[in-house]
Write a protein that binds this DNA or RNA. Structure first.
Lengths: 242, 242
DNA sequence: AAAAATAATTGCGCTGAGCGCAAGTTCGGG
DNA sequence: CCCGAACTTGCGCTCAGCGCAATTATTTTT
């Protein structure tokens, strides 16, 4: 797991093709640090109980280097959802064009958020390892997500999904995000749906599998896309306040 | 603006009725601190350039007391959107029952987010003062919202809107939030719509007034409520990944 | 292949946010 | 009028985060 000893099981299969060797290594250590942050957070029941030094040590770098990549522990954790958001947007844009909008969106999300399936992308495999490696599960995740201090940053990083999704949704709908609010609203709704479904799954003890919950929620939110586009200039007929 | 000298223009009209005198004073200083944080943030173009001591001084309390109410500068700023969220939820639940769902929601939001209208609630009046008192406007707000460090906390506090809205939406729809995801999804979508509309209004220079933008966005998001309720147990017919 | 240029890592030391503690102050109830 | 509880304040400590400058690794140039 250290940045150096890791040179690298399956050298060619990395998350995002990197250009120069330097850049590759940079991404690798970056990811290493994030993973270390995640592990320690789960192990210690909360980011609060993890010092930057520990993270740095686990990742095999100096404390100073850690702060060189991320300006806070929270940012280190947040990099993971951020990356995932990028992958979801990519997956969505590569869905077959004849697929219904909501299905394409839902499956793109589900495919990435579901850790299972084939040993695909490297980071996913690692995350699954961490999860599978015993002990960590709903319970641990819950304590992390509920942590008062980390949550704002975590959610902000999950909100990357909205950012990444907006342009591809706009393209698929044939709308210009600079002219029409609809793509942004749909993206925001989908992002919210993912968050809500996850929270629901984590907190209420529900029988339905996470996958089904996610798919349902996203498809529901995606239905917004069938709204008529918003004419920004003109207000609706008459609805002024009394 | 100090906590002491402010004893209080229009003593009876306070945001939330307070029980004991002590509790009232507590809420008052709390609000004072938040307002001070907002003012200074706007004046100095970013929370980054404001020290806790300055906020405390402006609010007329000691630095230690400041940290006694809020454990970070960001939290102090975030209290304002949080309070506003509570007012919106209240306003929505008091809308006439025969009003269409989306209209009720949109108007509840617009009424609170629009600073104008009558000199209603005290905090709104103050905020308007701040805004009106020259210099601060879109531009200043933009620099605040775009600030890297404060944004996560700000957005998290705006997300209070979702939290507050969920139960009242569920009630109006006749659904149980513990059984059905739809109320949460609608609330999340509305929250996202507000955020998106605001961002759009702040960044693209658009001709439409903020009010119209907000109303449109919220009504669009609220349309989700007409989705058929989600049967959590059963998945849709067949949509497994290949 | 060596040397020069560029980029990444590291150690050191400083600033300042946030908090525990204990003393002082204000307020409500009997 | 006085007692107890809640609130405020000052002091001092810890540690996250960052600027700086030196060191090491990597790419490019000659």
């Amino acid at each position: 797991m250290s940045a150096t000893e890791n040179q690298n099981e399956n050298e060619n299969e990395n998350d995002f093709e990197a250009g120069s060797r330097r850049e590759r290594k940079r991404l690798e250590t970056r990811n290493c640090i994030s993973q270390a942050a995640l592990q320690l957070t789960l192990e210690n029941n909360g980011l609060q109980n993890v010092s930057p030094d520990e993270i740095a040590e686990r990742a095999g770098v100096s404390a100073r280097t850690f702060h060189n990549y991320f300006h806070s522990r929270e940012a280190a954790l947040g990099a993971l959802p951020g990356d995932r958001a990028r992958r979801v947007a990519l997956a969505f844009s590569e869905r077959p064009a004849d697929e219904p909008f909501d299905v394409a969106l839902a499956e793109a999300v589900v495919a990435e958020y579901t850790l299972g399936h084939e040993p695909g992308k490297e980071s996913v495999r690692k995350l699954r390892e961490i999860m599978a490696n015993g002990s960590f599960s709903k319970e641990a995740l819950r304590t992390v997500m509920d942590e008062e201090g980390a949550r704002p940053h975590l959610l902000e990083s999950m909100r990357q999904l909205e950012e990444q999704l907006t342009p591809v949704i706009a393209e698929r709908l044939g709308l210009d995000p600079a002219q029409d609010l609809l793509p942004r609203i749909v993206a925001a709704a989908v992002n919210g749906a993912v968050r809500v479904a996850t929270k629901y799954w984590l907190h209420e003890d529900v029988q339905a599998p996470y996958t089904a919950l996610l798919r349902q929620a996203v498809r529901t939110a995606a239905a917004l896309a069938q709204q008529p586009a918003l004419p920004l200039g003109a207000s609706l007929p008459e609805n002024e306040n009394p």
